[in-house]
């Protein structure tokens, strides 16, 4: 109430400080070029849903009213899937965050007739809303079912529209949307780095979900950068790493680290019908 414009400016944190939520490594350019990816440590993820709402907030995702959930038309670019194992008293819940895997070999891309979804040279599976004609072919092609169709125009009753992020398009009816790896954040960091005449620092880009995740189960990174902390993590945890639905050959950009359960019987292979009860 009693804050003058000057004071407000003085009170604001410097923009540049915001990126540094994770200690950064040296600025390492690497020969293969950038491939944005993520390491998801299932042993850290608790299923707390913070990432889900962070993504809704960052990316102007329409409200998922009850009717939308009932119709199975709710949109969650990242969703926490919960799988049961066993029965009481040995029942176990397993959580896994599922978002677009930004496949290197993406089945959604080949089928799009208009290049509305394509692979960019930084490893992103990009969705160009303006070109999308809404065939939903890509959604059928995606084995992870992470593409969501807009069956109607989204609405934010006044004054809720004030919260919309100006960096992110509001999607109209008739098109597909999905996780973009928060491309707007990548862009901002790239612009900042360019203005400051430097390389992007490892860990400088933080998508909303990873930023929020209390347990740091989600770590965003350039998986081509062998120096990045997550790449090293994936390397060190090679015994735990796997990619989702590997046999589809989609070459996902997301590396999952297996959950550790000291009491689990281990599924010998992916298709084993083992009831893993303690």
């Amino acid at each position: 109430m009693s804050s003058s414009a000057n004071e407000a400016a003085a009170r604001a944190s410097a923009v540049s400080e915001m990126g540094r939520t994770i200690p950064t490594d040296a600025e390492v350019p690497h020969p293969e070029g950038v491939r944005w990816g993520m390491v998801v440590d299932l042993d850290r993820c608790t299923g707390c849903q913070a990432c889900v709402v962070a993504c809704q907030a960052e990316n102007n995702i329409a409200l998922n009213e009850e009717q939308r959930v009932l119709e199975r038309r709710a949109k969650t670019w990242i969703r926490i899937e919960r799988y049961w194992e066993g029965e009481f008293p040995n029942a176990k819940a397993r959580f896994i965050p599922v978002l677009c895997q930004h496949c290197g070999n993406a089945p959604c891309e080949t089928v799009c007739p208009v290049w509305a979804t394509y692979h960019n040279n930084e490893g992103l599976n990009v969705q160009v809303y303006n070109r999308c004609i809404g065939t939903r072919f890509c959604a059928n092609g995606c084995p992870y079912s992470v593409r969501y169709f807009n069956f109607w125009n989204p609405e934010w009753p006044e004054p809720m529209n004030n919260q919309l992020n100006p960096d992110v398009t509001v999607r109209t009816k008739g098109i597909i949307e999905k996780c973009t790896f928060c491309v707007q954040r990548i862009n901002r960091v790239q612009v900042t780095a360019k203005t400051e005449g430097r390389e992007i620092r490892s860990g400088e880009v933080q998508p909303a979900c990873a930023q929020s995740c209390p347990t740091s189960a989600l770590v965003f990174c350039d998986i081509n950068d062998p120096e990045s902390a997550p790449a090293q993590l994936a390397e060190a945890e090679a015994g735990r790493s796997y990619t989702l639905l590997e046999h589809f050959g989609t070459d996902p950009g997301i590396i999952y680290l297996k959950k550790v359960d000291p009491h689990a019987e281990i599924h010998e292979d992916e298709h084993a019908h083992a009831g893993a009860h303690a």
Binding site: W84, E85, R94, K258, K259, H267, E270, H271, G275, A276
Partner: peptide, 13 residues
């Protein structure tokens, strides 16, 4: 369920 069809959440002991 995680123990039918394909195991999605892979677990190591």
């Amino acid at each position: 369920r995680n123990d039918v069809e394909e195991v999605i959440v892979q677990v190591t002991n």
